[in-house]
Every structure is written in structure tokens, then in C-alpha cells.
Computed example of a mutant assay.
Amino acid sequence: MQGRLSIGDFSKMTHLSVKTLRHYHQTGLLEPAEIDPFSSYRYYATTQIPVAQTIRRFRDLGMPVREIADLLSSGDPDARGELIGRHLERLEAQLARTRDSVAALRRLLDPAASIDVERRRTFETTAAAIGETVAAPDVLDWYADAMTELQAALTAAGQPATGASGGLYDNELFTDERGRLVVYVPVAAPPRSGRVEPLVIPPTELAVTVHRGPHTDIDVTYGALGMWVDQHALTIAGPVHEIYLVGPRDTPDAAAWRTEIGWPIASTPSASETTVG
């Protein structure tokens, strides 16, 4: 018949390999127009060329085969638009992650990059807090829910914040990807409501720096602060303190965010002070 193409010719015209075309046949994504009953040769119609090229474009963009099949089989323009829109959102998220990684790498590769660190002894702080053991992948969602509950409890109790909100992160949260996390808001008279409980944070000796911008590369600041602590012969003692001077609850502009990171520290004993028992 006219427009009948062998799988080899169809491969050349669409830039899809024979192996790929066979796979698409097996999965039902792109079936041949005709299969010879005696030789089992696959033949394609010229009208399938645009379909094959559409599939290739979507695969180049990383769309899953199953979604492409749904897209091609749907006769509903709205449904097709929703499938394409959903995939475009994934691409945009991937692009954002790539940009964040590039920005972090530029910081790591810049020999002139530095941070300002100060040693600071904090005062005792009275706060309303929520603390739980959290898995590392759940930290952001847990934090958002906890802060919402905290703010609601403080509003109901008529207790205004006396300082910026903060968090205490146990070492296990970093080393074991699961550990205790406490978020708090300083207030004069902390209420008890739901998960909200009073908390007294004792005075602590900290090495403090400020991370500027989004939290996607906050690990770079953590690393730089850790090097400073090591270079000054200090040891880390206790949970990491974070104070959210400016954060997502204050402004959607991530470039304006300011997160204070404080590592509890203790001086490393000198050789003359070291004892062996």
C-alpha cells in the first residue's frame, strides 16, 4: 500500500531507533500500522511520522511513557492541556533545582567567598515551642504546620512575640536523617495548647553566622561555619540553633531571607590540659 514504510525507513525518518520503536510497540505507545502475518515484519504509515516525532519531543523533555500514551489517546483538549501543564510544572521545578545547585557550586568554587562569624553567649529565653522527632525529608512540611499551630495558639492567648522565631536541630537529624526538632517563638508567658508547650532555652555559647538568601544552599553556609569552628580549635556541643530573622513567613522574596545559624561550642583542651585516666 502507498505510504507503507519498513521499520528501518520509519526509523530514519523519525530519528527513533529500531530498538526504541520495538519498545514502543510492546508498551502500546506506538503500534505499527501493519504486521506481516508470515514474516512478522513491522510496517508503519507515513501518517504516523508526526505522531512519532511528537513522542520523541515529549521523551526528550522527560515525560513518562505512560503520560505520553494518555496524552495521545485522549480526545479531550482540556485533559491533554492538563497533562502537558503538569509536566511543564515538573520541568520548571527541575530547572529551579538546577539553578539552585549551580548557585551553590559557584559559592563552593569561589575562593574569595567567606562568612562573618562571631562568638556569642545568648541570654536565657522563654518561648512557646513545639518539639517532635522528625524524619529529614519531612522537616519543611512539619515546620510549616508547627509554625501555623504556634501562631494560632499565641494569637488565641494574646501573647505577642518578643523576638524572632527559631529552631533547635539535634545532631541525629543530620547524621541519621531522623531526630528531634523544636520550633519556638519567644514570648513572655507561653501558653499550653495542643502540641504547644512552654520552653526555657538556657544561655549558650555559640559560633554564629548569617545565611543570606534561600535555604537551598544553606548547607554551604553550614560547611563554612563548621570549618571556622575547626580552625579555631572549638568543639560542637549540643543542637544547632537557627533564628529566622527574615523568612518565608515574612516575605516571598527568597533573596531577602536571613537565617542566623548558631553552633553551640566549647573550647578544645590544649595538650597541657588533656588528662589520661
Rank of each mutant, 00 (worst) to 15 (best):
K12L: 12
P137Q: 06
T216H: 09
V134G: 03
G85C: 05
L5I: 03
D170W: 09
R249P: 00
I201Y: 12
Y41S: 02
L199E: 03
A135E: 13
A271D: 15
Q48T: 09
A135L: 06
E31Q: 14
V208I: 13
A79P: 12
A161F: 13
G158H: 01
L109M: 14
Q53K: 15
H241P: 07
H232K: 03
L206S: 10
A112W: 00
V134L: 06
E67R: 13
G213N: 02
E92A: 13
P137C: 06
P198F: 12
Q26P: 03
Y44K: 01
R56Y: 10
T148N: 01
P203T: 08
T98V: 15
R192M: 14
I55C: 11
Y44P: 01
M1Y: 06
A157Q: 12
P264T: 05
A153C: 12
D141R: 03
D100F: 04
L140T: 02
G85M: 01
V117H: 09
T122M: 12
T122Y: 10
T275Q: 13
I218V: 10
A79E: 15
Y222R: 07
A254Q: 07
S114K: 03
L245V: 13
P186F: 11
A207I: 04
M13Y: 12
G179C: 10
P264L: 01
D230C: 00
P32R: 09
S101C: 14
E260M: 15
L105N: 12
W228S: 05
T209K: 10
A45V: 02
E177L: 15
L206Q: 10
A153S: 14
D217P: 08
L71M: 15
D176I: 06
A135P: 00
T259N: 07
